[in-house]
Write a protein that binds this DNA or RNA. Structure first.
Lengths: 159, 159
DNA sequence: CTTGCTTAGACAACCTGGATGTCATTGACA
DNA sequence: TGTCAATGACATCCAGGTTGTCTAAGCAAG
């Protein structure tokens, strides 16, 4: 039976949400409360070299102000630090703390476990196939995550 | 090469967004400006029998107030009508207008075209396979669409 | 050295799309 | 008839973005 195009979209959304929701819940269960996907993305971007708010905003495709808010949250929870570069007074240096890296590693581990679970469910070859074809269809995973309300608001440029 | 679990999640998101973004843009191009996925979902739910705001809210997993707001927008744009049931003074009867159905049909057509495009890209058997396995993994497409900000906020019950 | 451009980051105001809480009305049912 | 459940309206709050304005730092060119 061939599904409609809309169903296909929902199926993809369902898969994504299933993974992310489970991962978030599991992360909370393991002691990292209140870590949202967006925090993971932000920390990953910081670890990858986004050293300041503007740069982080650029990488996440949000305004620098929005990025600054996220940074404030991460800092408050001890996941990143913000110290000023002694040589460039106005420039801050963002760094992921050991605790932050702990969260990142745990998150990755959980996602990998979920992937293993899927692999057991449909078989390694099938999952591999699924990934290959999806990659073919949509290209490499987008770096940007999302902006809230995009289901209802204006969409901006496609990923 | 086997991707990480997190990449798998992003791949699914990418596929979904790719379809939905393109569909929304195309819908706008064909003259239906400002139709967002959430409107499509809402109209679909109304057409399927959600006759009032509370019921619509239940079906979309949002509060009745949020549903009422969506209804107001749809009504303003002429996609649904709200007339009071003469027999039950306080109960409204929501109905999708011909224009609303036009949008729904056009949206479906666009999604189906996109699906055809994918089919040509990776082959019918592969797409069928992809759908079958995804269905196996996440079950039937969820009726609920989403709530905005779920990437960053509390998630509620999983789909 | 000074002038001028670019950029970081802070602050404030605003918008959207939800959630909550309260309330009057209303229909159903014991 | 009295009580209960539920609808829908209204007001308020909240989160997470946006834009706009401002100051200060860095850099390059005259």
């Amino acid at each position: 039976m061939s599904r409609s195009g809309a169903d296909l979209a929902l199926l993809l959304l369902g898969g994504f949400r299933s993974l992310v929701d489970t991962a978030t819940a599991e992360l909370a269960r393991r002691g990292y409360q209140d870590v949202r996907p967006v925090h993971d993305f932000a920390m990953r971007a910081i670890a990858a070299g986004a050293g300041n708010a503007s740069e982080l905003g650029r990488r996440l495709s949000v305004s620098k102000q929005a990025a600054a808010k996220t940074i404030a949250v991460l800092q408050e929870r001890g996941y990143v630090t913000r110290d000023t570069d002694p040589r460039h007074a106005r420039r801050m240096r963002l760094q992921v703390t050991p605790l932050g890296f702990e969260v990142l590693r745990t998150g990755e581990a959980i996602f990998d476990e979920l992937r293993d679970q899927w692999e057991r469910q449909i078989g390694p070859a099938q999952l591999e196939n699924l990934e290959t074809h999806l990659t073919e269809l949509v290209g490499d995973p987008p770096v940007r995550f999302d902006t809230p309300g995009w289901m209802s608001r204006d969409l901006g440029e496609p990923i």
